[in-house]
Design a protein around this nucleic acid. Sequence first.
DNA 1: CAGTGGTCTAGACCACGCG
DNA 2: GCGTGGTCTAGACCACTGG
Lengths: 253, 253
Amino acid sequence: MPASKKLAANTNKPRRKRTSGQLLYQQVDNIIRQRLIDNVWKPGEALPSEMQLAAELDVSQGTVRKALNDMVSENLLFRRQGLGTFVSEHTERRALFLYFSLVGNDGSRLLPESKILECEETDPTPEEIEKLELNEGEMVVRFCRIRFFNEIPTIFETITLPLEHFPGFGTEVEPPNNLFRFYQSQYGVTVAKAAEHVRAIAANTEEAILLGIKAGQPLLEIDRVAEMLDGRPIEWRISHCDNTNYRYVMERG
Amino acid sequence: MPASKKLAANTNKPRRKRTSGQLLYQQVDNIIRQRLIDNVWKPGEALPSEMQLAAELDVSQGTVRKALNDMVSENLLFRRQGLGTFVSEHTERRALFLYFSLVGNDGSRLLPESKILECEETDPTPEEIEKLELNEGEMVVRFCRIRFFNEIPTIFETITLPLEHFPGFGTEVEPPNNLFRFYQSQYGVTVAKAAEHVRAIAANTEEAILLGIKAGQPLLEIDRVAEMLDGRPIEWRISHCDNTNYRYVMERG
DNA sequence: CAGTGGTCTAGACCACGCG
DNA sequence: GCGTGGTCTAGACCACTGG
């Protein structure tokens, strides 16, 4: 047989085909995404190589590559040339650059220390039901804490979690400063996305005392709902920040 | 010659090669980016097809594709299957979703109307020199305006532009509501990126009068420097927003 | 050194938009 | 029907990492 015009048909391997409008790399993406949700590979661990995945899923390396690269740009995975592809972890760096927007007026980035004030398991308020998309009868864990930059109280925040995903939270173990890493390592819950709503408000008397400022002083309110890998809400947090020495930053475009 | 083991060497076309660590698709990216800066293709116009660019630049279609896709994800270009690749414009949509963060408490997105109060050509303050990276002796255009949602004054903002890029600004033509589109169509200046710094402040008496609120009421301050395609700052804007009915939104992750 | 991801090419086919 | 971008494959080579 002369080597000419090899059409795509009639190869020995019957490759996986597109089904009903689903693109191949999207199918691969979905399969790998589901494995992340199922904790098939734990955060920090390496995935199989592109070639192995391609062989297993009956597609070419290029298709696997596209799916993986898409997930890299979503910060779900990261790659190191010569080493492999890894599942992202909620490290200190990640918390600081991806999920914490306050930066010192001099440009310094620092995660504040935390002190938990109260913590209770309770029935949700209507607002909590809406924000966390809770079902009838589901309970929540609600706690508040103060956060300090260099020993100076700067943020007062209230956090609500669906009890279903966090059994024993706050009673058996003391939650640490970096909560997202704690959710991931202790409860297998990975935060993948968050939507923030920011407003300027006036400090009430309680906040004024806690933060050592005057009542009525402007505070930055950050209202944030965080989502899991599957898109369901997993944490609702309202932070009130004394932004005398800190500001909220973001890049657009 | 039997068709076997065709090595990459010895093709008829002597393709462009990588030079000193610059990847091929980065070279292509830089060339196209420079043409955007030089207005070789105007906003809204179509670029040549991938095949044409590939032929002209002596690379494969795949390499052009990667460069173009990178620029699409930076919002510099957009593509429409079956039609072509186009230069992004500062349309109303773009202004609203890419460069305007205030959203109604009910979720409604709307660009506020504007009314310019003052406008002058003047020497820059030290802060303006720093923010706009001005050279010795460069002058600026500084103006302030009020912005209205449904006739209700909500934002008071001060905007500074380097006069060099905006000759006759505000004296010969009345600047419209959508400034970025105006910069692009009238001055050939495309805003490609912006960095925002957000704080909560208290309204001063002047702002209180202008916005019809009480002095001392918390306002959201958005301090933003916008950059051109080549990365140089082109606009500095400080907006003070009454966020009683509006909030600043962003997605992370 | 072998194995990984990263780049680059070449070519086939698909889906879309328009005449 | 034709030209566009979009998907998918196959394979060569490069650059980095670790043993």
